[in-house]
Design a protein around this nucleic acid. Structure first.
Lengths: 219, 219
DNA sequence: TGACTTTTCAAACACTTGTTTTATACTGCC
DNA sequence: GGCAGTATAAAACAAGTGTTTGAAAAGTCA
């Protein structure tokens, strides 16, 4: 509508969003002032209230954009992989999932922003209730459940979801911990390369899933 | 020294620490004002600067106490378990580790505070560099590596650490995600009981570890 | 052009922040 | 008693916060 850049205009709103994306991600909601944002966007402080109606609304708008982008990138990436072969194995599915999960978070600057955003939002709670779960988590659960049913052993639904939690937990922990544990100079505690970790998670988790499907051994 | 409560005195410092513990954990560093703290501790705003020399120093002192407590609780818990049986199995070690890891974070109010503290500090970065890694992570890595070597299959050091990352990642994700996924009323996506998740992680991870020890199958 | 809306801006507003100052009680000791 | 040193408190300080105001500028369309 009015925000279409028909001529050289309506770009202030875009510049604000762009700066807000970076600053909210890096510094978090509280630590980022409107004046920080408008200084970087090179506009007046009142512009935020004019275009978005307040700092809160700007934050939500910024986060939602990133969230929807991430979700769609992940889902299309997985669907593409899964329809690329006729009989995907469990290992194939896991690798596809791991890559779809990680890639948007590590490639380019936007991905890293998202990771920071998540970390900050985990505690800040500045989003409307349910947005995260309904618009982001559930669609992902849907797709991954399909992939697991298609390639893995028979699992009851709760066990399947716990397995997916195990995998997501591993991947998130790698993302957070890798810069911690991998020393650029000198010996690292863990391999510094992400692909090594993906390989590990695939092997580790494939075995874990199959073990969860097997009947429990009673000693 | 001076903070010993010889008579009814020197308790203001303690009250401040106690309130700060709760407020910093729940609200984070930035969102907690020293007026919040002193109001709850029922003393003057100047008391914080008098006893601790500023908000930053108070935060570090508060966090360090919680951190050291957690580390020691975990380590003694694991050492006790591991020396309680003569030939601990891998599953036994994993269960001991999972419980030692989780229990301090879920029992009583202090545990939950720690979890919140961690979540906030993950992004805030208000701690002196290295405190986290040197005084907290490394000692834990040391103990768990021992336990894994004692009970698990032979693993090269990097693989062993990646396996430990896999386990820690799962446990952390359960802690964060369980209140999310488990619906108090109505059907839950995952079991609402923590012990069910521990059982899952043990089984999942034992299989994963053994798979990482096995030679790679080349198709 | 001229009326009309949309956008931008400098300034001000009301409020909160961490910290410092100044003064008052309280302790133990001579 | 007087005198250190410690501890608490009320008030003020300087800086920063999100938001609002009122006017100027830019753009739109008859």
């Amino acid at each position: 509508m009015a925000s279409e850049t028909k001529n050289g205009h309506a770009e202030t709103r875009e510049r604000i969003l762009h700066s807000a994306e970076r600053l909210f991600a890096v510094q978090g909601f509280n630590a980022t002032s409107i004046r920080d944002i408008t200084a970087e966007a090179d506009c007046n402080v009142a512009a935020v209230n004019y275009h978005f109606g307040g700092k809160d609304k700007l934050y939500i708008e910024t986060f939602r954009r990133l969230l929807v982008d991430l979700r769609d990138r992940r889902i299309t990436s997985m669907r593409r992989d899964m329809s690329a072969v006729s009989e995907p194995t469990l290992e194939y599915f896991l690798e596809s999932f791991a890559n779809a999960f990680l890639e948007p978070l590590v490639d380019g600057s936007r991905g890293r922003l998202l990771l920071l955003f998540f970390a900050n939002e985990m505690t800040g709670n500045h989003l409307p209730e349910g947005l995260f779960l309904d618009e982001f988590i559930r669609p992902m659960v849907q797709v991954t459940t399909e992939g697991l049913e298609q390639t893995g052993p028979a699992l009851d639904p709760q066990t399947a979801r716990m397995c997916m939690m195990s995998i997501v937990g591993q991947l998130l922990h790698i993302l957070k911990g890798l810069p911690f544990f991998s020393n650029p100079e000198g010996p690292s505690l863990v391999p510094p390369d992400l692909s090594d970790h993906v390989r590990h998670v695939v092997r580790f988790s494939a075995a874990g899933i199959r073990a969860c499907a097997a009947p429990v051994e009673v000693s």
